[in-house]
């Protein structure tokens, strides 16, 4: 939800393939955001890059892996590394090979947890375009769903103690590093959860909140819960109204793109869970 671009990794030992693919993908956008393309010429180089760069290591959306590189199955081993050693099941991994004889499609897809297989001959610009579009969408939806589930689980575990809920939420609220242009605030019963040190930051938040609260937005429930997005600033609000069983919660954030409805629903589930958990918890 807070991506500025979609990190994509191309691994191929042929420099020409890398540069042509890079060129072809240069102007692709998904949800209006460009791709950020990382390249590696071998399995070893790709692993080093993943351990060295937090974006490739933690937030990689799509990977295209050549099969035959330093060994006949280096690309497949790399796929295994991503899935099993790094425990990354989110990244959409595609295998593309110049020698389908060495890694037959059915065998590969049966044995490795990949999202697609194609030969280099098939890799036209249009094919890449549709793959990138669909796989980034898939990546975002899957990632948001997994994280939402994890957060809700944490909220359930922490229910009873507001301090523990705050701990669980530290990974959501943020105005820190890398987040200055996509700040997120959570306001519960009128109180900002992690107030920043500086008053002007809190003032900005208050103005934004007032502006969005005044709008009608998208109605999410009969109680009046709503989602509002300001087209110009990209600021968004998910607001949960207080009832007998839940607190009033405003999740205010700014992102670089307008999320599809499914994503809004996921964020709404999280916010609702928070409103209920908070209501049922004590200070300590």
């Amino acid at each position: 939800m807070f991506f500025k671009h979609w990190p994509v990794l191309l691994v191929d030992d042929e420099p020409d393939v890398l540069s042509i693919s890079k060129l072809a993908m240069k102007n692709f956008t998904v949800y209006g955001l460009p791709l950020k393309i990382y390249t590696a010429a071998s399995k070893a180089e790709a692993i080093a890059l993943m351990n060295d760069n937090v974006e490739v290591g933690c937030s990689l959306a799509v990977a295209f892996l050549d099969v035959v590189m330093e060994t006949d199955s280096a690309g497949l081993e790399l796929c295994d590394y991503i899935r099993n050693t790094m425990g990354n099941s989110l990244t959409q991994v595609f295998v593309r090979t110049g020698q389908p004889g060495l890694a037959p499609e059915r065998e590969v897809i049966d044995k490795y947890d990949i999202n697609g297989y194609f030969t280099k001959m098939e890799a036209t610009e249009n094919k890449l375009y549709s793959l990138i579009k669909s796989s980034v969408r898939q990546y975002l939806a899957y990632g948001m769903a997994t994280d939402t589930l994890e957060l809700i689980t944490q909220l359930v575990v922490a229910t009873g103690s507001r301090r523990r809920i705050s701990y669980a939420l530290t990974s959501v609220c943020g105005t820190g590093f890398d987040q200055t242009d996509t700040p997120r605030w959570i306001i519960i019963d009128g109180v900002l959860l992690f107030p920043p040190d500086e008053t002007d930051a809190e003032k900005t938040m208050t103005i934004l909140l007032k502006m969005l609260m005044a709008r009608e937005g998208l109605n999410l429930s009969p109680e009046g819960d709503k989602y509002v997005r300001d087209e110009v600033s990209g600021c968004q609000l998910i607001h949960i109204c207080s009832t007998a069983s839940k607190s009033e919660v405003s999740f205010l954030f700014s992102s670089h793109f307008a999320p599809p409805h499914k994503i809004v629903e996921l964020m709404y589930s999280f916010t609702t869970a928070l409103a209920i958990a908070w209501h049922k918890s004590e200070e300590s």
Partner: peptide, 24 residues
Amino acid sequence: ALYRAAELQHMKMNFAGKFYGGDI
């Protein structure tokens, strides 16, 4: 490898959470 992967999975949220956020 699984222990490490699970630990780093949690750390990802700390360092570069992109779905909901990073760790303030």
